[in-house]
Design a protein around this nucleic acid. Sequence first.
DNA 1: TACATTTATTTGATATATCAAATAAATGAA
DNA 2: TTCATTTATTTGATATATCAAATAAATGTA
Lengths: 145, 145
Amino acid sequence: MKVNTPTTTALYSIEQAIKAYRRLCNKNISKIIEDITVDQALILIILNDNSSLTQMQIGDLVFKDYASITRILNLMEKKGYINKGINNKDKRRSLLEITTKGKETLTILSPTIQLNRNTALKNITEDELNQLYTILNKITNNCNQ
Amino acid sequence: MKVNTPTTTALYSIEQAIKAYRRLCNKNISKIIEDITVDQALILIILNDNSSLTQMQIGDLVFKDYASITRILNLMEKKGYINKGINNKDKRRSLLEITTKGKETLTILSPTIQLNRNTALKNITEDELNQLYTILNKITNNCNQ
DNA sequence: TACATTTATTTGATATATCAAATAAATGAA
DNA sequence: TTCATTTATTTGATATATCAAATAAATGTA
C-alpha cells in the first residue's frame, strides 16, 4: 500500500487513534452500565455541568450534527437519563435537564471515564499533550476554512 | 464546561480534527463524484494498489469492523466500482477486484484526494507531522493493550 | 475419515452520521 | 400589524459502527 508518506500516515493515525479510544471507552463503560453509549455519557456530563443549553449548542460542543443530537436525546429520554421539555421563552427550543437517574449514572461512571482518559494517555507528557493539541487545532482550522 | 484540562482537551481535539477532516473530504469528493463516500474511495485506493486482499485485511487497514466492510463492499459492487467473486482457493473468502469504472473514478478523484490532504496539513511542518504520528501511536497502543 | 475447532464472511438489531427538506416559532422590515 | 426571513428542531433517506449470532468452508486431531 502506498500510504507511507508523513502526510498520509499522520491523517491515518488520527483515525486509528480515535477509533481505538472509542472502542476502549465503549468497552469499559458498557461493563458498568449496560444501556449507555460513550456519546450519551458525554452529553450527560455536559448537561450536568451546564444548565439551559440548546440542542444546537450541545451539537457544537460534541461536534455532532443537530439531527444526531435530536435522536440521541430522544433515546436518552426514553431511557430516563434526561427530561426534554419546551422552553417557554422560545418555543422552538427544548428545555433539557438531567434526571436523578442521569446524575446517579454519572457518579457511577465517573471513575471509569477517568480511567479511560488515563489509560489512553499513559506515558504521554504534558508537553506532548500540548503539541498534540496545537497540531490538531491547526488541522481543524485548516479543514474549516 | 469543565473539560479544559490538557487530558480532556487533547482527546477532545482528536475527535474535532478527524470530524473536520472527514467533512472536508466528503464535501470535496461529492462535488466531483456524486455517489461515492470517503470510506468507499479509500477502499478503492487500497484495492487498486493491492491485489487479492481479504475483507478482513481491508477492515484492518481502514480500522473498520468486518460487518461494515461487507456492507460497504456490497454498496460499491452495486454501484459498479468493484466486482466481488469467490476465491476458489478458499471458498470462505471473496475475490475482490476493482472495475474499470473504479479505476477511472480514482483517476478523476486523485487530485481532490491530494488537495484534501494538502488543505488539512497546510502550514504544518514535517517535524510536527512526525510528532503527531508518534503521540497518536502511543495513544492507539495504550488503548489497545 | 469423522468430528471439533478455527477462520472468513454475513445477517440482525440498534446507534450514530450526514444531507436535504419540513415544520414551527421568532425576528426584522415595510 | 403583515409578510419575508431567520433560527431551532425534527424527519426522511441512506451510510456507517458495533456487537452478537449465524453460516459455511478450512483445518487440526483422534
